[in-house]
Design a protein around this nucleic acid. Structure first.
Ligand code: MN
Ligand code: MN
Ligand code: ZN
Ligand code: ZN
Lengths: 147, 147
DNA sequence: ACCGTATTCGCAACGATTGTTGGTTCGCAA
DNA sequence: TTGCGAACCAACAATCGTTGCGAATACGGT
C-alpha cells in the first residue's frame, strides 16, 4: 500500500477530494499487513474517528480498488477481504479459523498449462487451503480443549 | 461427477434418501461439464421437474459438496459456482462475461513457495483471470458494437 | 402395509453490499 | 476568499445469495 501522501495525491489527480475520513482509511490501510473485511476496517476506523459511516468505508475501499491501489479478494463465501499488499504474492487460507496469510511463489511461469485455448491471462491467483499451525495442533491433538 | 446410480448408492449408504428431486439433480450434474450457479441448476431442474424448489436444490448441492462429490467455487463476489468435474484441475475466469473454464496444470509441485510457516496445505487452487477469446475480440476491436 | 425419520417446499430471515434522499459540511481550484 | 461541487451522515429501503424454520409429505427398512 502506498503512503497516505501518495494516495492523497492520486485521489486529487482524478478529481476526488481528500477528506479526513479518507485520510484515516489511507493511514489504517497503509499500516495494515493483514486481509481485513470492510466491517473490520470500519471498526478500526471508528476508533480513530467515531461516527465514520460504514457506507463511507465501502465507498473509499471501492475507489481504492478501482484505482488499483487495493486488492479485493473473494477467497470464501461471505464477506470480501481487502488486501493492502500490492506486491506479487498469493494466499494461504485456513479452513479452520478463516485466517488469510501472504505467501510468495516463484517458478509459476514454468508450470505447464493446457486448455488456454486463446484465453488471454492477465493475472494468476494461487490459493493454498489447509490448516494453520494453531488449528492443526488444536484439531490434531487428542488432548485438545473442548469445541 | 459420478453416475446417478453411484450417487444414489452413496446417499443411501449414509442414510440419505433418494428422492425424485435428487435423481433429477444427479442426472443434470452428471451430464454437466460447466460451472453452474445454484440458480442455473434450479432453472435446468425446473425443466425436468416443474415445481422443484430452489431450497431443495441448495440442500442437495450442499449434501453433495460435503460428501466430496461436488466442488463449490467462489471465484468472484456473487453467487457460488458448482463444479461437477472432480478431476484435478484449475480455472480460467473471464473478467468480461464471467465465464469459467477448466484448465489443466502440471508442474505445480515444482514451484517454490515461501512463507508456509508450518501451515498444512490440503489443496491448491489456481485461478487465471483475464479475457476469453470472445470478450477479447469484442473489447480489442475498434469496430466493436456499441457499449 | 406400517412407521419413523428424512425430505420437501414456501416463506421468513439473514448477512453483505449498494441505492436513495435530503440536509449539511467541507475540500480545493480559481 | 469565495463558490461550487463533492463528500459526509443518517436513515432507510432494496437487492442478492443463502439459510432457518415448520407443517405437510414421502422414502424405505421392517
Ligand atoms: Mn495478501
Ligand atoms: Mn472446473
Ligand atoms: Zn486456523
Ligand atoms: Zn468473456
Amino acid at each position: 500500500m502506498r503512503t497516505p501522501q501518495e494516495l492523497s495525491t492520486a485521489f486529487r489527480a482524478i478529481g476526488l477530494k481528500v477528506t479526513p475520513q479518507r485520510q484515516v482509511l489511507f493511514s489504517l490501510l497503509h499500516q495494515n499487513d493483514g486481509h481485513p473485511s470492510a466491517e473490520a476496517i470500519h471498526l478500526a476506523a471508528s476508533a480513530a474517528m467515531p461516527g465514520i459511516s460504514l457506507r463511507t468505508v465501502y465507498q473509499t475501499l471501492n475507489d481504492l480498488v478501482s484505482m488499483g491501489e487495493l486488492q479485493q479478494l473473494q477467497l470464501t463465501p461471505g464477506s470480501a477481504r481487502f488486501d493492502p499488499n500490492t506486491s506479487d504474492h498469493h494466499h494461504l487460507v485456513c479452513d479452520g479459523c478463516g485466517d488469510v496469510r501472504d505467501v510468495y511463489v516463484s517458478g509459476l511461469a514454468d508450470v505447464d498449462v493446457r486448455g488456454l485455448d486463446g484465453f488471454r491471462v492477465d493475472a494468476t491467483d494461487v490459493v493454498f487451503r489447509g490448516s494453520c499451525p494453531t488449528c492443526t495442533s488444536a484439531t490434531g491433538d487428542p488432548s485438545a480443549p473442548h469445541a
